[in-house]
């Protein structure tokens, strides 16, 4: 598997949401919510984006409280933690402002990414602290989770109204799968096999990567008959591709076009 990052439609949707922050109508809309089922590449895309732009990346914990959150934020910003909560909040605001200024000068976009934000989306105190920091510092906060965030935020209309963009990560399209396979796979893959991969993986990135490994392992030992066309479904007939996400049963490449489980 080639170690390259592939920009799927989810990546572009995330970027569009961040761009929309710059053209927002209300100044206080500084929250972006990213959600989707596990295995759609949220963490991969966010970690890549955060490390590329020098953003602050925090992973929410089950027992996170407001003070713990600010302490972690200060640690990440390399600021000595004052004793009192009020002073910590001020220090966090200053640190965020300085980091945003630094990013602006170097032409990068700065934000605070909070992964696994489902843990905090139902906690009013923590979410209000996020809102205060976002409002007062002008730094965008990206909340990443698995689908509960949107529902939980509806309980806090003052927060929900500040969300400038919701990005729901969806399963890969046929075009995404073909692009993914052509960029990452060391063996050329024919469109018929790519279509089968999309169908049996349901478009989940995690499963597509699993299928890619199986295709590559087979293709490097049995070169495709037509290198221009790539490895076809007929050539891989009977080979184990992935395990089904729900049942755990192995899915093999069929000799006809039906899925053999």
């Amino acid at each position: 598997m080639k170690p390259v990052f592939v920009k799927t439609h989810n990546y572009h949707a995330f970027h569009a949401a961040l761009k929309s922050l710059n053209g927002r109508g209300a100044e206080e809309c500084q929250l972006v919510v990213v959600d989707g089922e596990p295995g759609l590449g949220k963490t991969t895309i966010l970690s890549r984006w955060a490390s590329e732009n020098g953003c602050i990346y925090l992973r929410a914990k089950t027992e996170w409280q407001s003070s713990w959150f600010i302490a972690e934020l200060l640690d990440e910003a390399r600021v000595t933690k004052p004793h009192r909560h009020e002073a910590r909040f001020k220090a966090a605001l200053q640190a965020l402002g300085e980091r945003a200024l630094l990013a602006e000068n170097s032409g990068r976009q700065f934000a605070v990414v909070i992964d696994e934000a489902d843990h905090i989306s139902g906690r009013q105190k923590v979410i209000e602290t996020v809102r205060d920091l976002a409002d007062l510092s002008g730094v965008p906060f990206v909340l990443v989770g698995m689908g509960k965030i949107r529902d939980n935020l509806t309980r806090f209309p003052q927060i929900a109204s500040r969300v400038s963009g919701y990005v729901r990560f969806s399963t890969a399209s046929q075009q995404d799968v073909e692009h993914f396979l052509s960029e990452k796979c060391e063996v050329p893959v024919a469109p018929c096999l790519a279509e089968f991969v999309r169908r049996c993986t349901g478009g989940y990135n995690r499963e597509i990567k699993e299928a890619l490994v199986a295709i590559e392992r087979f293709g490097l030992r049995n070169a495709p008959a037509d290198p221009d066309l790539g490895l076809t479904i007929r050539e891989m007939a009977g080979q184990h591709l992935i395990n089904d996400r729900k049942s755990g049963q192995p899915i093999r490449v069929p000799s006809n076009l039906g899925v053999v489980a």
């Binding site: 170690p3 390259v4 890549r48 490390s51 590329e52 992964d115």
Partner: peptide, 15 residues
């Protein structure tokens, strides 16, 4: 961020 990684993972994330 990842905590558990291989070199190809790092290249994918950073290069």
């Amino acid at each position: 961020i990842r905590r558990r990684f291989s070199i190809p993972d790092l290249i994918t994330d950073t290069a």
